[in-house]
Design a protein around this nucleic acid. Structure first.
Length: 717
DNA sequence: TGGTCGCCAATTTTT
DNA sequence: TTGGCGACCA
């Protein structure tokens, strides 16, 4: 009922073996145009009938349900290319994507298809970056100062930590939730638009007794943000929606765009759906693309209900499906389809391919984690021998630390790798230090930035920081705080005297001199060079990082702009600053499944596919969480073109009881158990493992008899 | 005695 | 990399 039959797209046979349909072969249609008098326009080349229908649709709101590997990006690019070709004004096209990187890629591909210059005029980016752009321009008309500062999530949590302490909730025994927990709760509340009581009942039942205190923290946090003119990520969305709702600005906003296109619509939340709806005017054509089988951001309050209810919210909407897969072998598709069959995705679709041949995906049981790392390295190298470059291979896993052991083994064997989704650049302490100093200059009411900067001084801890801050009037959000700090030295412990002098001089130079952002960073670096050696053992490396950041800042003339861009679109890791070692180097990609969304590789090695890791234990409490884990596995499997190797260790060593030789036995992921026949299976057998464990027990357990009997029983069978 | 500093354990997924 | 706990300094 949700996926109404589309009037514009022919329905596609849903069996995996259907090869009758006349979907054009991409390669031959690109190189061998048969229609000699009228070449199809560039955007139409190589599209299959379903894709072409989606590209050419005009009028009613359009939902494109695009399965994994069905040419979703190609279709989106072609659609935008067609619009521009046919005279649409690019700066009246809004293209909302999940990451900034995918927006940039889409726009660049549109550019090479049409006109590069015109393509760059498209409003492209994440919801957050577009919100920022709109609010700088239109914010003042709803009472938002144009000079607001954007807080990254870590800063937001720190600010919550401050008000939490100020409200006296940080006392020893109160067992009040930590700042990260409160921040996560707050963010989910905003993004799902659910009331606190409901949020607590559904997701945080153990916090129920603290409901009044939590309300107090939220109120104080909101008040503090207002006083200091800072917005967190969620506020960017909230204020965009406020623009939409405003009687003055709303109607104007709805005339800005002729076309709104949203990618990854299954991973948008309630607030984002409101925004798209509210930004759509009577003459705006809305197109959303998504796949409910790939919804993996429920923990961030994303809801596939947006996708399911699209046709209800956007009246007269039509739905079209893309089901022909151009990526994977039939064997891989079969395994993925079978695994997903049990799930509760609403929009029926079955991927099929014209490809034939290919090897069976493998399900590998490893003796333990060390064996798994070894096996994976062996396979990576074997594939490289066969001609599959490392660049065409990836190792995927559920949680960041799952790659720890493998990384050691890769390093030992000199296999180069690049890791995605790990520690964020913004989370590196030294980067936060530098940005805090710039933020103090940029917005002297930014209490959080002040606290961080002052706390860097020797002999100055939380208590002294607060004392100095109070004497400067920072807690009250007085912008004169900076002038006071620069005109007379605050009272500090003797150890901090030199540091505070250098800091004041550096900031004064940045304030009065007409310095570019890069020059200001250069000036501040002298202060950092003073305090870093005491603060960080690897201070030289960190200072080097900051010099790289200085280079990056060279592209900006405006300090506020630089700060906002870095906050909303940070480089992935610190090493990004230095760039990849050599362009012609070959390296393998390590990534969480979440970060692998939208990517594909010739060979995918999925590790730690053990129950407890995938699905993760944390997700087992409710069925929604469990289903999301299943879709996560589906996303991982469908990243592979030719080779899919899934492995899991039979046992995990734990140190829970203080001994290194403790272990837990782990079965294969419950999602894979029913579809084992789709795999070529090999590795250690569970029976063998259990006997091994019991032998191990023999050496360390005192109740020898029982264990002995257990071993005898097993070996007897 | 208040406050800083050093050492230890633990960490789902992210715009 | 954060937080918690204990040692040491004014």
């Amino acid at each position: 009922m949700f996926a109404a039959a589309s009037p514009i797209a022919p329905s596609v046979p849903v069996t995996a073996t259907a090869t009758v349909l006349s979907a054009p072969d991409i390669d031959s249609s690109d190189t061998n145009p048969t229609a000699d008098e009228a070449l199809p326009p560039r955007w139409a080349r190589g599209l299959n009938p379903d894709q072409r229908a989606a590209v050419e649709h005009d009028g009613a709101p359009l939902l494109i349900v695009a399965g994994a590997g069905t040419g979703k990006t190609r279709t989106l690019v072609a659609r935008v290319g067609r619009l521009i070709d046919e005279g649409a004004n690019p700066d009246r096209i809004l293209l909302l994507t999940f990451t900034r990187r995918s927006a940039a890629e889409l726009i660049s591909r549109v550019g090479s298809m049409t006109d590069h210059q015109r393509a760059t005029q498209i409003w492209g980016g994440t919801f957050h970056s577009v919100a920022n752009r709109l609010l700088r321009r239109l914010g003042p008309s709803i009472g938002l100062p144009a000079g607001f500062t954007v807080l990254d999530p870590a800063d937001a949590a720190d600010l919550i930590g401050i008000v939490r302490a100020e409200l006296g909730l940080a006392e020893r025994r109160s067992r009040f939730p930590k700042k990260q927990t409160i921040a996560a709760l707050y963010s989910r509340m905003v993004n799902s638009q659910a009331p606190l009581t409901q949020m607590l009942d559904e997701s945080y039942p153990w916090l129920r007794p603290h409901i009044d205190d939590l309300r107090g923290v939220f109120a104080a946090y909101t008040e503090r943000k207002r006083a200091h003119q800072v917005l967190d990520y969620d506020d960017l969305l909230l204020f965009w929606r406020a623009l939409v709702a405003s009687p003055e600005v709303g109607p104007h906003l709805r005339t800005l765009f002729d076309h709104i296109l949203v990618d990854e619509y299954q991973d948008t939340n309630a607030l984002q759906s409101d925004i798209v709806f509210g930004t759509t005017g009577p003459t705006t054509q809305v197109t959303v693309v998504g796949d409910d089988a790939q919804a993996i951001y429920g923990f961030r309050a994303a809801t596939v209900a947006n996708l399911w209810a699209f046709a209800e919210r956007f009246e007269g909407a039509v739905t079209t499906k893309l089901e022909q897969n151009y990526r994977s072998t039939p064997q891989i598709l079969h395994a993925a389809n079978a695994m997903l069959a049990e799930s509760d995705v609403h929009i029926a679709k079955r991927l099929w391919t014209e490809r034939d041949g290919g090897r069976q995906p493998e399900l590998i049981t490893a003796h333990d984690e060390a064996a798994q790392s070894n096996l994976v390295c062996d396979q990576i190298l074997a594939l490289r021998e066969e001609g599959v470059d490392l660049r065409q291979q990836a190792v995927l896993y559920r949680a960041n630390h799952h790659s720890d052991h493998l990384e050691l083994e890769l390093a030992r064997r000199d296999i180069p790798y690049v890791k995605f989704g790990g520690l964020k650049f913004l989370e590196a302490a030294h980067v936060k230090d530098l940005l805090a100093a710039l933020r103090v200059l940029d917005n002297p009411s930014d209490q959080l930035a002040w606290y961080r900067v002052l706390g860097m001084l020797e002999g100055v801890g939380p208590a002294t920081t607060k004392r100095i801050a109070d004497s400067l009037g920072i807690a009250d959000g007085e912008p004169e705080a900076l002038d006071r700090f620069l005109s007379s030295p605050p009272q500090v412990p003797p150890a901090a005297a030199d540091g505070v002098t250098e800091l004041r001089e550096a900031m004064a130079d940045c304030e009065v001199g007409d310095l570019t952002p890069a020059e200001q960073i250069e000036r501040l670096l002298r202060f950092f060079a003073m305090v870093f050696p005491r603060r960080y053992p690897d201070s030289v490396v960190r200072l080097g990082d900051l010099e790289q950041l200085q280079t990056t800042a060279g592209a900006y003339h405006d300090r506020s702009r630089f700060l906002t861009e870095v906050t909303l679109d940070p480089p992935d890791r610190s090493s990004d600053l230095a760039g990849p070692p050599h362009v012609d180097d070959d390296w393998i990609t390590l990534s969480t499944i979440h970060s692998a969304k939208g990517c594909e590789w010739e060979a995918v090695h999925l590790i730690h596919a053990a129950d407890g890791n995938l699905p993760a234990d944390m997700a087992l409490s409710d069925s929604d969480g469990l289903e999301e884990e299943r879709r996560l596995l589906y996303v991982a499997m469908t990243r592979a073109r030719d080779v899919l190797n899934i492995s899991f260790p039979l046992r995990y060593h734990t140190r829970r009881y203080g001994r290194d030789d403790d272990y837990q036995l782990a079965p294969v992921s419950r999602f894979l158990e029913p579809v084992r026949s789709a795999f070529h299976e090999w590795g250690s057998s569970p029976q063998q493992a259990t006997a091994d464990e019991l032998l191990l027990e023999l050496t360390s357990v005192t109740v020898v008899d029982e264990v002995d009997n257990g071993v005898a029983a097993l070996w007897g069978s």
